[in-house]
Design a protein around this nucleic acid. Structure first.
Length: 330
DNA sequence: ACAATTTGACCTCC
DNA sequence: GGAGGTCAAATTGT
């Protein structure tokens, strides 16, 4: 049923890109707020994180050997055949309600389908922003060593459409405004109602941010291509597109839903387009867009004052297995 | 009335 | 036995 097997590397890549998108969302919200010193600082921090995460994502896309392997496997086998630490739980997770005995735990806590870290900005303090799917909370647990409980959600359409998707949401210890969200399973549902979207008050800022978001869109159809070329997106009200179609996430929905409609081929490394980022092409646009919005909002120009692109460069000898950002300052 | 959330209990794995 | 995941009755919200 499920056709979206996730390799660990690919999941990490998508996770990173989703985080980038979420940071953009937070930046959007900051830019819509009255400008003060604190918000400017926060914007700077967000941009810094965006750059770092983008770099890391590109590095992952460029080098991760299991991405290429996963791509090849996904062409040939269903999820249950995908070798990964999650595979044992993965197959089980896709039929969570067909088990013989009730209250049976499906697997240990080792699996991870897609983990993203999202902010609560714009969604209140109770949880991260709408991710385009409807969820029903079915449990909450205090987790050992964690300051905040973990909430368990399943797709609202689980019963009606046998949708096996679930997610876990937990507020991070270090930053209560951030949530770690772990998605399990694929959405097989087709929600009829579109989630509500917020609209920026400033149309110019909206346009600029949409342009920025477009370059940060993550689609699980081709995560590598997204990382390399960051194709434009068209916000789609229908949050659960047909399989095989890309699933662009709107600016107001920074949380990537999951591996819904996931992917087929990924490009082999090295990724075309990486050089363009390394040459400041798209990165320049990201920062320029931020600066443009800053101007519209009366904020200082961020690119020149805070982080001139000349200060950044992509480490061409990026360590593939590394998880640390590879930004360096020549 | 129906749907969503809360919460304690139960279950499995380590 | 503890920790984490899920169930389901009770409660709350619309």
């Amino acid at each position: 049923m499920a056709e979206a097997g996730e390799s660990g590397g690919r999941a990490r890549l998508v996770s990173e890109l989703v985080r980038v998108q979420d940071l953009v969302h937070r930046l959007e919200l900051q830019l819509r707020a009255p400008a003060d010193a604190a918000s400017v600082d926060l914007c700077r921090q967000l941009i810094h994180q965006i750059v770092a995460l983008t770099d890391r994502s590109i590095g992952m896309a460029r080098c991760s050997p299991d991405l290429a392997a996963a791509a090849a496997q996904q062409q040939q086998q269903p999820l249950s055949g995908a070798p990964s630490p999650l595979s044992d739980a993965g197959s089980d997770h896709h039929q969570p309600f067909l088990r013989a005995s009730p209250k049976k735990r499906k697997a240990t806590a080792r699996w991870t389908n897609q983990q993203v870290r999202v902010s609560a900005a714009g969604a209140g303090a109770e949880g991260p922003a709408d991710d385009g799917h409807s969820w029903r909370k079915y449990g909450q647990k205090d987790i050992l060593g964690a300051k905040h409980p973990r909430a368990y959600y399943r797709c609202t359409h689980r019963n009606s459409q046998n949708c096996p998707a679930t997610k876990q949401v937990q507020r991070t210890d270090d930053d209560p405004s951030l949530f770690d969200v772990v998605y399990h399973g694929d959405h097989t549902c087709r929600p009829s109602a579109a989630p509500t979207r917020r609209t920026p008050h400033n149309p110019h800022a909206q346009a600029a941010l949409q342009g920025l978001a477009a370059r940060l869109t993550v689609t699980t159809d081709d995560a590598i291509a997204a990382a390399a070329a960051l194709p434009p997106m068209t916000p789609e009200p229908d949050s659960c597109p047909p399989r095989g179609a890309s699933s662009p996430w709107s600016l107001a929905s920074p949380v990537g839903s999951d591996s819904n409609g996931c992917a087929q081929a990924v490009s082999p490394c090295p990724v075309p387009g990486y050089a363009a980022w390394g040459s400041h092409g798209d990165l320049q646009e990201v920062v320029s867009a931020c600066a443009a919005v800053s101007d519209l909002q009366g904020l200082p120009a961020l690119d020149s004052e805070f982080m001139p692109l000349e200060c950044f460069a992509f480490d061409q000898s990026f360590d593939m297995g590394g998880v640390m950002p590879s930004l360096f300052y020549p």
